[in-house]
Design a protein around this nucleic acid. Structure first.
Lengths: 122, 122
DNA sequence: CAGCATCGATTACGCGCGTAATCGTCAGCC
DNA sequence: GGCTGACGATTACGCGCGTAATCGATGCTG
């Protein structure tokens, strides 16, 4: 099941720290997003239905935690984009960013290091 | 206005060749997608409404062409993903792919070349 | 023990999307 | 010139999403 845009905001909060109560999550995300606490509750429930988060009773309330790792989610999303836009190959994506000047100096440095490593261990 | 998933399939066809008739586009995409020609017509009309394509009368019919460049679209989509998933930085994205072994030998070679260039001209 | 406050669950509603059938119009053929 | 067929335009409809109010259960408190 797919995690929608609004839902992913809630997931990010849970990935940062979990398990957490709904109130706690709402306190973190509602304000910045301009949501009410009710909206956050709805999102959490949809994520439960999608099995993307799990709930553990804690006395009166529930504490929520991700069932999907951020790694897995990021992998799926990234792969999807690369497949749809760049025919599944990563280099053209980077090339695209380099052409449009969207690579920071830090990016370039990190990429250099990365590529060096790649040259090494394979 | 955002281009949806199904709509982007139509756009890809138009980016490949344009201007083209609706029938022509449908001939290319309907089959593989399992769509009827009617569906393709609807998608074209939505893209017209969104100003993502333009139509020029050709006698009895219209010929359609993109108004949005594939470059611009790809840029927006890629930037969106990098912002949402990698805090706007490209290196972590590549790092992610390298960790999950999703870099082909060709990717690595191309990345090396790219990075070399980057080292050069800036 | 009865109310009240607090949570999660249920219900709501408009909008875009995926998918398509139907309608209306216009051009060409008999 | 009326009919038929080919187009584009309009309408349809269920589903997920964004956004939220309301309901119902449950535990605290006086």
């Amino acid at each position: 099941m797919r995690i929608s845009g609004a839902e992913s905001v809630v997931m990010e909060a849970l990935w940062k720290r979990s398990p957490r109560s709904a109130e706690d999550v709402a306190a973190e995300v509602a304000g910045p997003q301009g949501w009410t606490e009710a909206t956050v509750k709805t999102l959490i429930n949809r994520l439960l239905k999608k099995k993307a988060v799990e709930a553990a009773r804690d006395g009166r309330r529930y504490l929520y935690a991700p069932r999907v790792s951020r790694e897995a989610w990021v992998a799926a999303e990234s792969q999807g984009l690369v497949d749809r836009l760049f025919d599944g190959r990563v280099a053209p994506l980077v090339s695209h960013f380099s052409k449009t000047k969207k690579l920071s100096a830090q990016d370039v440095a990190e990429l250099k290091a990365l590529i060096a490593e790649l040259g090494d261990d394979r």
